[in-house]
Each structure stands twice: as C-alpha cells, then as structure tokens.
Amino acid sequence: MAERRSKHEIIYDILNLISHKGGKVKPTHILYGGNLSHDRLKKYLQELIDAGFIEKVEDKGKTFYQMGEKGYKFMEEFKKIEEMTQAFGI
C-alpha cells in the first residue's frame, strides 16, 4: 500500500504541478493532478495563498493560480530536504 503523503509533500506536489504547467494553471488541473478531494484542495490552496506561495488571478473571466517567488523558493528548499532525507534514509 502506498504511504500517506505528508502535508508538505502535498504542498510540494501542488506547487510542482503548477510549475510544470508554466507557473499558471486552472484549479481543475490541480484537482486532477493533485489527487485530492475538492474540499481538501480548497483548504490547501487557501493555505498556499496565505503563505504567499501562489496567487489567485483572473484572466478573461476565468480563475487561475499563479506561482509566486516564495513558491519556487519553497520547492527548491523542499527538494534539498527530500534529497537529504533519502540520502540518510530518515
């Protein structure tokens, strides 16, 4: 059975998804790719906006989520931590 993702892993997965789509995506893309329920996704997106990792933007009447500078920095830091965790097997 697959291990449950930690909160930070979920956040990283969401940011990674946005980053891979050019830094700006529709919420439905995150919903499908993030493997999360609608309610949990909403909660996580709000948390990411509050932390300044992403921002909500309107374009031609549609809602998009755009990656912020802090989001990219978090991803970089988290990647290092993941590599360290794997290297030490902790």
Binding site: E83, Q86, A87, F88, G89, I90
Partner: peptide, 19 residues
C-alpha cells in the same frame, strides 16, 4: 544497522555512501 536496512530498502547511491 539501521542505515544498512534503509540502503537495502531503497538501493540509493547516496544512502550507500551515508551507510
């Protein structure tokens, strides 16, 4: 012993080095 166990589980080069 624990780090060897971790290396056996993930067969990663970095884990081998730390072990």
């Amino acid at each position: 012993l624990y780090s060897f166990d971790k290396y056996r589980a993930n067969q990663n080069k970095s884990t081998l080095l730390t072990y």
